[in-house]
Write a protein that binds this DNA or RNA. Structure first.
Lengths: 200, 200
DNA sequence: CCTACCGATCGGTAGG
DNA sequence: CCTACCGATCGGTAGG
């Protein structure tokens, strides 16, 4: 097995363990065990435990950014961008559930410097969402009032998804995104004109 | 100072530290420091570190449940229940931000038995939300299709709020709830009939 | 990648 | 609530 493969194996073990037990509750011996070696041997492949955490979070942050950049670059109506942005997010989460959970949960374990790197990528990601919503409002498709709160709602749905998403589910990320986008776009209320009792 | 007060002081230190650094990264010495004593002395007041975590999470779980029970007991239109449920949730989070963050983040540190206790309360809480949405659909006020996803969206907004809510903010929990409920109820889209360009 | 180990720190206790 | 401490375990290293 190549060094690169071995390292990826270690990373994979760390992702699963950091997600399951948390970064601080996971020991270097847990990771070595899972990778089939002794704890001392791990240091032929890594420098520190924190390096593993950084590599995991930085890599998935880039994936979120790359996917969202691809979506934002399409010239599509705002509601289609919302659907596709949500689908992209859910796709990344469901195909990298361990890493996504670690990204959302364990960044506090990073040193201040590295935490800042991750925070900047997170900010950039949120700004791309803000851009999609702003463009929708500019086009007259999304409501202007409450746009700030709309952003909060969309980001909540995206950021919370790692908590309930199961990669083995019946619905695909795209199908889930469509359903969630429908709720976000149209709201919970039955339009007054359609109500059975005729109230408006 | 009474024993009860001293204990509450210790709990308060633990809440803040568990939120800031996480349960496993917080040492018994950190907590003792913050409470103004030595680590050994802490054990005159507590049995184990995990007891602190359980007490913190169990107490805030009860607060969420109590507040939501009070809301669900009111006979009000479904949309008003949604607003008030959201307001109740945000009020608990903003007045107990440390505990709410620990509740959302640190339950993995609990033993299986105690984790189950917390999980059950969390399930009960989610069921109360499901009840509010179901009643709204039964009354013909909320859309039937996608109700499952509407629940997911509402819970995402509620459960993610500890990440952005600042107790010192300009808007009250009630004002924030009103704005968020507006987005949830009416959606992001400008109604077709109202569009500037007349498209529908 | 293993053997053998290190200093530091952990949660917790005994005796006062 | 302090002094003084315990065994266990932590992340990491030296030498092969």
């Amino acid at each position: 097995m190549t060094d690169r493969n071995r390292r990826e194996q270690i990373l994979q073990a760390a992702r699963a363990l950091f997600r399951e037990k948390g970064y601080h509750a996971t020991t270097i011996r847990d990771i070595a065990d899972e990778a089939g070696m002794l704890s001392g041997s791990l240091y032929a492949h890594i420098r520190t435990k924190e390096d593993l955490l950084f590599e995991i979070t930085d890599e998935i942050a880039d994936q979120f950014l790359d996917e969202m950049k691809a979506v934002a670059g399409r010239s599509l109506p705002p509601d289609a961008l919302l659907r596709q942005g949500l689908a992209a997010h859910l796709r990344v989460v469901s195909t990298h559930l361990d890493a996504a959970s670690v990204f959302m949960h364990e960044w506090r374990g990073l040193s201040p410097d590295r935490r800042r790197v991750i925070q900047e990528k997170r900010d950039a990601y949120e700004q791309m969402w803000a851009g999609i919503l702003e463009a929708g409002a500019a086009a007259g498709v999304f409501r202007r009032e409450g746009l700030r709160f709309a952003r909060l709602v969309v980001l909540s749905v995206a950021n919370w998804s790692y908590q309930w998403l199961h990669p083995g589910g019946v619905l695909s990320a795209e199908q889930l995104a469509d359903q969630l986008a429908e709720v976000l776009l149209s709201g919970l209320l039955v339009p007054p004109a359609d109500r059975a009792d005729g109230t408006a």
